[in-house]
């Protein structure tokens, strides 16, 4: 297209930490954005050779196919327990789990809370899209009040079905947590902020400052029953008021760190 002799600069190219496998995610799924951010951070920090990921059960169950770092697959919800074991046996590795809301906030609730309580030096990337994606759009612990899902067809009634689980707020109360934040993936600005947060979470782990978690607000256009762009708008209009973006716990040792 361009034939001049002007020097050309590559502004962006696919990160080396992502494998060549095309993902199985629906078009426009923010899982892909989260994968890409983790891969970019691994490239930037040059930790791919010593990073070990733990894949969850859920839509991201095949995450191990999409990264070029080492990866293991955990039983449903048990990724933090598996990561704990790996990190304790191989303390020089960077161990992270990648979990969805059904995996982490429902069946894996006890594992995540105890891992944070013990202050395990692991990083958790938590994808919160307020629904069970893989199983067909059932209500998740993180579903919004009034949200229609296949198992709450008249909307989530908080009197009988309870209130959404706010994982970032919940885990930030524990002393073992070193870095707990919530970010969103709905526009370029927030995606950049999410990438910085993932970087800081890995820095927390490398510095041995305790448990780190980045909650990423995500979309599920297929099971929300809307288009890709409507899903981004829904996230902005309905999820952000319930799940405010913010730093819920930042270890004092990280405050002066610039990335």
């Amino acid at each position: 297209m361009v034939t001049t002799a002007t020097p050309v600069q590559v502004v962006y190219k696919r990160p080396a930490s992502l494998s060549d496998t095309p993902t199985h995610y629906c078009p426009g799924c923010t899982h892909g954005i989260a994968h890409r951010l983790i891969a970019e951070v691994m490239d930037e920090m040059n930790i791919r050779e010593r990073a070990i990921g733990v894949a969850p059960v859920g839509c991201s169950v095949f995450a191990y196919n999409y990264f070029t770092c080492d990866f293991v697959e955990a039983a449903h919800g048990r990724a933090p327990a598996m990561a704990t074991g790996i990190k304790r046996v191989l303390p020089d590795r960077v161990v992270f789990t990648y979990q969805g809301d059904g995996d982490m906030a429902s069946i894996g609730m006890s594992e995540i809370v105890h891992a944070a309580g013990r202050g395990e030096n692991i990083t958790v990337i938590f994808i919160n899209n307020a629904i069970y994606g893989m199983t067909g759009g059932q209500m998740a612990p993180t579903s919004l009040p009034g949200q229609k899902t296949t198992s709450s067809p008249t909307g989530r009634d908080v009197e009988s079905m309870g209130f959404p689980m706010k994982m970032a707020e919940l885990l930030s109360q524990l002393e073992g947590a070193g870095y707990v934040v919530r970010r969103s993936l709905h526009d370029p600005k927030n995606i950049r902020m999410a990438k910085k947060a993932i970087r800081l979470a890995f820095e927390t782990q490398i510095r041995g400052l305790g448990f780190s978690m980045v909650e990423l607000l995500s979309t599920c256009n297929t099971n929300w029953g809307v288009s890709v762009l409507e899903a981004m708008q829904y996230l902005k209009d309905h999820m952000l008021p319930v799940y405010p973006i913010g730093d819920y716990k930042v270890s004092p040792a990280l405050e002066n760190l610039r990335v």
Binding site: V2, T4, T6, P7, V8, Q9, V10, V11, Y12, K13, R14, P15, L18, P22, T23, Y25, G28, C29, T30, H31, G32, I33, H35, R36, A39, P188, I191, R192
Partner: peptide, 23 residues
């Protein structure tokens, strides 16, 4: 303009963005 915002949004990392360096 090669700003790269498309690549920041792309969930599949399908885009490579190039830019001419201004003279």
């Amino acid at each position: 303009t090669g700003c790269g915002i498309c690549a920041i949004m792309c969930p599949e990392a399908a885009l490579t963005v190039y830019r001419e360096v201004p003279q």
